[in-house]
Amino acid sequence: MSQPVQPTKAQFLAATLNSDLQATLTLFEQAGNWQERYRQIMLLGKSLAKLDDDLRVDSAQVRGCESNAWLYHSEIDGLHYFVADSDARIVKGLVALLLIACNGKNSAEIRTFDPNSYFSQLGLQGQLSPSRTNGLLALAKAIKDTA
């Protein structure tokens, strides 16, 4: 039986979101209305690299998401890095928001990460459908569980 395919160390380190993504997050936080925030979420999603098809496997799929979403984790020098993707553009943008909050953090920082507070701070509370909110919380839980 062959070993499951994993992203390379370089892919995990490349997933630490660059300054362009951080600038997009700043624009997201400054957006004056929900439509502008939605647009920024879509832009965040576009900036995440697409996972190769051989990484889109059942074992990496996040349960609880209505859309398909895949998550990989690696601990490098005591810090946690995640590579994730989704087949839905809005979910991919929401995934990017989670990666901004969690990539490159230690276990204690991720354990204390409160996704509800984070999403509220970003103005997402009450803006997403219940199924999308549940999927986002499932992804946040998967990140916390792996770290």
Score class of each variant (00 low, 15 high):
Ala15His: 08
Arg63Asp: 06
Leu122Ser: 03
Ala49Trp: 00
Glu36Ala: 13
Gly135Trp: 07
Ser2Ala: 14
Phe12Pro: 04
Phe119Ile: 01
Gly64His: 05
Thr16Leu: 12
Asp54Ser: 15
Leu139Gly: 08
Glu109Met: 05
Ala69Pro: 07
Met1Ser: 14
Tyr118Ile: 01
Glu75Lys: 15
Asp85Ile: 00
Tyr72Pro: 08
Ile41Ser: 04
Val5Gln: 14
Lys105Val: 01
Leu97Thr: 14
Lys105Glu: 06
Asn106Tyr: 03
Asp53His: 07
Gly64Gln: 06
Lys50Met: 02
Gln61Arg: 15
Ala23Met: 04
Ala69Cys: 13
Lys92Asn: 13
Phe28Ser: 04
Leu137His: 14
Ser86Gly: 10
Ala23Cys: 01
Ala142His: 09
Leu43Pro: 02
Arg37Trp: 02
Asp52Pro: 11
Ser59Met: 03
Leu13Lys: 06
Glu36Phe: 00
Ala101Gly: 07
Asp145Ile: 03
Lys92Ser: 11
Tyr81Phe: 14
Ser2Glu: 14
Phe12Arg: 04
Thr133Leu: 13
Gly45Pro: 11
Leu79Asp: 01
Pro130Tyr: 07
Ala142Trp: 06
Asn134Lys: 15
Gly93Asn: 10
Ala31Leu: 01
Thr16Ala: 13
Leu124Asp: 03
Ala23Thr: 13
Ala140Asp: 08
Asn116Ile: 00
Tyr38Val: 00
Val5Tyr: 09
Ala108Asn: 13
Asp77Asn: 14
Gly135Phe: 07
Ser129Glu: 07
Gly78Trp: 03
